[in-house]
Design a protein around this nucleic acid. Structure first.
Lengths: 146, 146
DNA sequence: ATTGCAAATGCAAATCATTTGCATTACTTG
DNA sequence: CAAGTAATGCAAATGATTTGCATTTGCAAT
């Protein structure tokens, strides 16, 4: 439960009120098993614990949490997906195309690339995103079907 | 005009009919100056040349062109964006956050990274996407405001 | 503890991008 | 040139996300 307390404190630190909806949303993220969640998955899971929470509350809080750097919003398809953004977080992920589990990649291959881009392409890099799609360990073991 | 003819042939090669809407859409892409275009930008530009083209035609053709590997669809924000996919195309882009011009990156930094991922993370990479955000040449020259 | 108030919420309706059903039209192949 | 299928126009549906407004609530100051 220490993780959860930390999240609560983080929310307060940012000057946000610690409301029931927000508490439950943090639980949901911590229990997501590192999967990307879309708004309605989050909504459904929050409703299991507090059946009166409204969809607009979910959306408003997601936006707020993104703005405060607590979660990250990814637009991989028609609907946005969200994930917890931990301290040492980076923008490099391994995303399983089967189970949608997302794992951070603790290594940035782009240092040299950015120098090359700056020097050879007259483009000033400020941000980058690397996404590696494929099969995570579990899914590659079970993929007798594909 | 050679470029455009090539596009026309490509469409026919794929077994698609060469309709006015499709012709104009190819023109729009070729004249986009390598910018990402969203559906309504494409719609507006097509309407300039053929005022009766319907939005659903645009969407249907965009989907078809994506399916046939003629254009690429990127979900960077709420609305999808599209770009021409040329022969030697890769999934590595430099995207200007000011003017939204997109330039392909003729170098893949991920060969080694994929080996590392496979060996150290038990993850089998099948696809990847690299996006470098920043200022393109033009915009970095003019950015007195930022 | 109680109060005051800005922040957060619920609700319903609006918005915006995208999709779809269906009747009509128009490319292309023979 | 005709036939058949693919493509289109139109209007309405869908689905995700946002917003206005009245009500409630967390929490800092009393």
């Amino acid at each position: 439960m220490k993780q959860l307390e930390k999240m609560y404190n983080l929310i307060k630190t940012k000057g946000l009120k610690l409301t029931p909806a927000r508490k439950i949303m943090m639980e949901v993220f911590l229990n997501s098993g590192n999967k990307l969640l879309n708004a309605s998955e989050i909504y459904d899971q929050v409703r299991e614990k507090n059946s009166k929470t409204n969809f607009s509350t979910i959306y408003r809080n997601l936006e707020l949490l993104v703005d405060h750097g607590i979660i990250e919003k990814l637009h991989l398809g028609v609907e946005a997906q969200y994930m917890l953004l931990d301290e040492d977080s980076c923008r490099h992920h391994m995303i399983c195309t089967v189970c949608h589990k997302i794992e951070p990649l603790p290594y940035c291959p782009l240092k040299e690339l950015e120098n090359y881009i700056r020097d050879e392409h007259n483009f000033i890099p400020t941000q980058h995103r690397v996404e590696i799609y494929g099969y995570c360990k579990k899914c590659s073991e079970h993929k007798k079907d594909k």
